[in-house]
Design a binder for these strands. Structure first.
Lengths: 242, 242
DNA sequence: TCCTTATCTTTACATCGTAAAGATGAAATA
DNA sequence: TATTTCATCTTTACGATGTAAAGATAAGGA
């Protein structure tokens, strides 16, 4: 077990196995993304591991994202991540924090680009779904993993910002001031409804469970168009009969 | 590895290790649920494994549901499930099918019990969330696992029935006849909106992400009350201003 | 009665997460 | 400058898991 492991795990740069340092010049290490911003040879491992994790996630999906695979991708030993993240939960949590920041940035820039009130109202949910479609693995880390530690400041802060942005957008759409403290039932329901709808739509879409509906719609109807119809209906359509 | 495994895995009835069958009477086996309905000693293993899986899931959660744990719970060797389910995916898929059948039955009986039109409209989504709250592990198997094989007839059929029930309920609420073949964009949007909302609400609720909202609501507001408010608003409330 | 075959057990192996001990070099201190 | 300290990384090890393959065992038909 240990033997075969060592044989496979060392698919890296062959870093001076014992002490035969024939090249006293800066030992290069880092097979990928080792341009010049890594000042010394050890300082940027944490960041490198997070980038490697993102790469592994996009390449091999959620089930391929293991501690050892990330270490392999970064060119370090399989136990190296332990010191920086402590745990698999730690790595996933920090990666989820990265995802939340990307996610928030994408929604913010999309909202800023909108001009008309209608576009402004649709920009955020459309950017939400678009991010999830573009980064399904990352969205899975953020919302599908049960193994996240929200007591970590970075994750807590990023997720909180995401929620605040949502609540703010809903409040603006309802032309109300959201007092960060208390909420009326109607306000809370509006926020929860918006979040539930877009989150549920995204999950069902990523899981392929909307294919059944999309296939029955008029030829060439895209998921984005369906989302628009979902969002527009409660505003312009007539309410369902009781 | 093999030694310690054998030592731990055999926490069962000590079934005639080699050939020293001192008791030629029916070897009892099955430490749990071995009343009299297991006719012989091998016939009902498939069913027994599914029940064991459900037990393990409720006791140890989603992460504790492993092939070996299920076999252990059923009192058989760790490779026994392979012949019946082929794979971990197979076991999870069959278990998800069981869950979908329970789920559909719960919603159907809840709908039948409703009398007023309003109660009839709220019964299905409330039963949806109630089932998920009562069986979070099972709901996770059904909707959170990426490892399901929908080509299996049992799972495909049960999930399809769930979708058909939803579409039918939405159609009845809109007082329309759903032609099983094609859908207008408005119809598809109504179905997708209903499903997205209740599914998203359930996921956020199970993940504890609504605690933030629930804590800001008037004292003692329960998740069920919030769900009611979400569902009622688009009917009775005024639409959000553009 | 014997043999075929489905069912279950043993054994084995690669992989994973995690812990603990050993090596290594950057930085602080003298 | 020489030495020590300590954070960082590697080795080694262990239990657990999924899965494959071979061996045992009993049921039912020949």
């Amino acid at each position: 077990m240990g033997k075969s492991e060592t044989r496979i795990e060392t698919a890296r740069v062959a870093r001076t196995p014992k002490k035969a340092s024939a090249t006293p010049s800066r030992p290069v290490r880092r097979n990928a993304a080792a341009k010049a911003e890594t000042p010394y040879h050890h300082g940027a491992l944490r960041e490198a591991l997070l980038q490697a994790a993102e790469r592994v996630l996009e390449r091999d999906g959620l089930s391929g994202l293991t501690l050892r695979a990330v270490a392999r991708e970064a060119g370090v030993s399989h136990a190296a991540p332990t010191h920086h993240f402590g745990d698999l939960t730690g790595l996933l949590s920090e990666l989820a924090a990265v995802g939340f920041r990307q996610f928030n940035a994408a929604m913010a820039s999309s909202c800023d680009a909108a001009t008309t009130p209608l576009a402004r109202a649709l920009a955020r949910p459309k950017a939400y779904v678009a991010y999830a479609q573009a980064h399904p693995g990352m969205y899975g880390i953020m919302f599908r993993t049960e193994r996240l530690d929200y007591s970590r400041p970075s994750l807590n802060e990023a997720a909180e910002a995401s929620f605040a942005g949502l609540a703010n957008a809903v409040g603006m759409m309802r032309q109300e001031q959201i007092s960060g403290d208390a909420l009326t039932l109607t306000q809370g329901a509006a926020i929860a409804r918006a979040w539930s709808m877009v989150h549920g739509f995204t999950m069902l879409l990523l899981d392929g469970r909307l294919e059944d509906i999309l296939g029955r719609l008029p030829e060439g109807t895209t998921a984005e168009r369906l989302l628009e119809a979902i969002l527009m209906a409660p505003v312009t359509g007539k309410p369902p009969a009781p």
